[in-house]
Simulated scan of single mutants.
Amino acid sequence: MLLPFLVIANDKVSKNATNKQELIWFVEDKAENKHLLDENYEISSPSTYIERLIITSLQKYNIIVKRSSSSRISQSIKDQNNVCTANRANTKARRAYSLFSSPQSFYLTHKLYRYKGKRPLSHALLNEKGQIKSLSHIFKVYPNHTIGIAKGVSFGEFLDKQISKLEHEDIYYLGGTNRVTALESMLYSERFDFLLALPIDMEPTEKQKQQLEYYPIAGAPPYLIAHINCSNSDLGKKAIQDINLILEQLYQSPKYYKAHQKWFSEKELSLLQLYLKQRFTDKTYISKD
């Protein structure tokens, strides 16, 4: 179901679009995306802010914005030749049926959160760097504990593989439009013992911070990279090419830097830039100038 603001925004994009190719742009149906195309609403998430810039820059297409669940979006990309969506992990499974853009935005990777631990976390869970050895190792040490995980989304190939090895009864899955805030609230109300979440999604109060613990997962990439994902078709290829051109310009813009600066310190931005140069090329993705 389209929200009113999406219909209005889409009307703006669609004016004089008779001869434009139609591109269906799916937005994941969660509360954080509610104001995606409302220009009067300031977006703090780097990926959503950049997604808005890309949609409004794709003037050569008649963009139809629709809201849906992550699983239905994946199926639509498989079944239709004119579908795109943003903020997706680039995984081998998805590459088998779809196309990905250059990096859209960057996040500090998922951490394992614990709240109000009655005892210190067992050292048997941690390696010498203070990292969780693996998600499955948690339940060898704490067999009666549970972990909260968002339903129907990808955590990136590394963590997806670790999650697949967990027993179903050890996981508290939650989907729906408010799953991000709901999972955090459920951790604080002790509905489960651990939560796997992005730091950007955690908004504890000052009091909650005092009892909130978080741990990195050994072997997990330090950053989660979001991409635009489109149908594997001639139109999808064309859209990806146009999106990449927009991204190339955005990488060097103050807007792109500012979007990430809200969630990374100057030191963290420097480390991110170094990581990207080592993994990809000497291209600068995030620049002050």
Rank of each mutant, 00 (worst) to 15 (best):
T109M: 01
K255A: 13
K237Q: 14
N40Q: 10
Q59P: 00
I138A: 09
H168G: 02
Y61E: 02
I225K: 04
A17G: 03
N87I: 11
Q273G: 14
Q131F: 04
P4K: 09
A226G: 11
P204K: 10
A197Y: 06
K209W: 04
T48M: 07
E157H: 06
M186E: 11
K165H: 07
Q75A: 12
L36K: 00
E167V: 06
E184T: 12
S122D: 15
A86M: 07
N33G: 02
K140H: 09
G219M: 12
Q162T: 05
Y257I: 04
W263N: 07
H123P: 01
A17K: 03
S102W: 02
F192R: 09
A93E: 15
E248T: 05
A93K: 12
S189Y: 09
I200Q: 13
R88A: 11
S102D: 14
N40L: 05
S233M: 04
I50M: 15
F5S: 06
A218D: 11
D170H: 15
K66E: 14
E32F: 01
S265Y: 02
K116I: 02
I163V: 13
T177N: 10
D79N: 13
Y256D: 03
L198G: 03
I43N: 05
L245K: 14
S98I: 02
K129C: 01
S71L: 12
N244P: 10
L135P: 03
H35L: 04
I286V: 15
F194L: 10
L36R: 02
H260M: 04
L276Y: 09
L135W: 06
L108D: 00
I171N: 09
K151Y: 14
K129E: 09
I43S: 04
I171Y: 07
L3S: 04
S74P: 00
S185N: 15
N82T: 09
T18F: 07
N81E: 14
L274C: 01
I63W: 00
Q210K: 15
S164A: 15
K140E: 13
I217W: 07
K12I: 08
Y275M: 04
L276T: 06
L37G: 01
E266K: 14
Q208I: 08
K277Y: 01
E268T: 01
K140G: 08
Y214L: 11
V141Q: 10
V13I: 13
L247P: 00
E169K: 15
Y49L: 14
V180R: 07
Y172L: 12
L108F: 07
Y251P: 01
P222C: 09
H145N: 13
Y113M: 08
H227W: 03
I286T: 06
F155K: 10
V180H: 05
P216K: 12
A96G: 03
D201Y: 03
R67T: 14
W263V: 10
I54R: 04
I138E: 08
N232W: 02
K30F: 12
I64A: 07
D201L: 08
Y256K: 03
E28P: 00
S122A: 13
N144P: 01
